[in-house]
């Protein structure tokens, strides 16, 4: 029985639509640019060189900073939440998890747009603050670094909570009891037993928040209002506006390499913690 052959259609599909596109991008990233901006198949490292210019390095720095900030914020907000859910009764637990998944099912753009409505100068938050008399003039909330950060945390928080919850809920309670039995006070139990064991969940959560955060252009576009240029915005701009596909490709390649490195580092931790339970 040659069942392996059932994978052939997928193999061809992946070759054409997953691997070939990446190869094209890789080739483009080393191509020169004609006077009219067309692609010339002549080797150059210029596109990568260009990325080292201060404005672009700045974009990289800002993207990584924002992604790191949002990952940390999601972790700080999400870990206690995951613990609270994991310690609830089963019936409550299912509802609480459901409530976390539900927003994910509403359109991602709508969720982001909702914050535009909240944060605008005449938005709900400013109106409320003026109404209760804390401020007289509307605060400039929208189109700022913090608005983008908020949008990221809002959109990606469930990605942090759910993996941590899933690890915590499977945690063998007798381990906690054993630690208590051996004389560990609650905070020690947490620090020495619960937290280390939940690390695989934390790592998958961190990846699931960091990856989309570092590559998004929608959140920065809508909530940053063009003020906050991130890697994603840069790629989008190079492909659709500036029409410099070579440079856009180079940035994409850099992003892929960044992600491969992150994956490499984290997969070591995950491998030991048994976090790769996808199949």
């Amino acid at each position: 029985m040659k069942k392996q052959w059932l994978s052939v259609p997928y193999g061809i599909w992946a070759l054409v639509f997953s691997i070939a596109p990446i190869l094209i991008i890789a080739v483009y990233s080393f191509c020169s640019r004609s006077a009219y901006g067309n692609i010339i198949y002549e080797f150059t490292a210029e596109n990568y060189g260009k990325f080292l210019e201060p404005i672009y390095i700045n974009v990289l720095w800002r993207s990584v900073l924002l992604a790191t900030q949002s990952t940390l914020a999601c972790f700080i907000l999400g870990y206690p939440m995951a613990m609270i859910i994991a310690k609830s009764t089963i019936k409550k637990r299912n509802i609480m998890v459901m409530l976390f998944v539900l927003p994910l099912w509403t359109n991602f753009l709508l969720r982001t747009y909702a914050w535009m409505v909240l944060l605008r100068d005449q938005g709900v938050i400013n109106q409320f603050l003026i109404y209760i008399g804390i401020i007289d003039e509307p605060l400039k909330l929208l189109y700022s670094h913090n608005a983008v950060l908020l949008g990221m945390v809002y959109n990606f928080l469930p990605f942090m909570v759910l993996p941590i919850y899933s690890v915590l809920s499977k945690l063998d309670n007798s381990l906690v009891e054993a630690a208590e039995d051996l004389g560990a006070p609650p905070w020690q139990v947490f620090l020495k037993v619960i937290f280390p064991l939940s690390l695989p969940g934390v790592i998958s959560g961190a990846i699931m928040v960091f990856m989309p955060a570092v590559s998004t252009f929608v959140i920065s576009d809508l909530l940053g209002g063009g003020q906050t240029v991130l890697l994603g915005n840069l790629i989008q701009n190079q492909f659709l506006v500036a029409r410099n596909w070579q440079f856009g490709s180079a940035i994409s390649m850099i992003m892929i390499i960044m992600i491969l490195i992150t994956m490499g580092i984290t997969s070591k931790y995950q491998g030991e913690g048994g976090g790769r339970q996808l199949w």
Partner: peptide, 20 residues
């Protein structure tokens, strides 16, 4: 190969398919 599109950022999938 299967993990490639899962790990790849959406924007890279998007622009690379556009290029293709």
């Amino acid at each position: 190969i299967t993990y490639l599109p899962v790990m790849n950022p959406d924007i890279v999938i998007g622009i690379s398919l556009l290029a293709l």
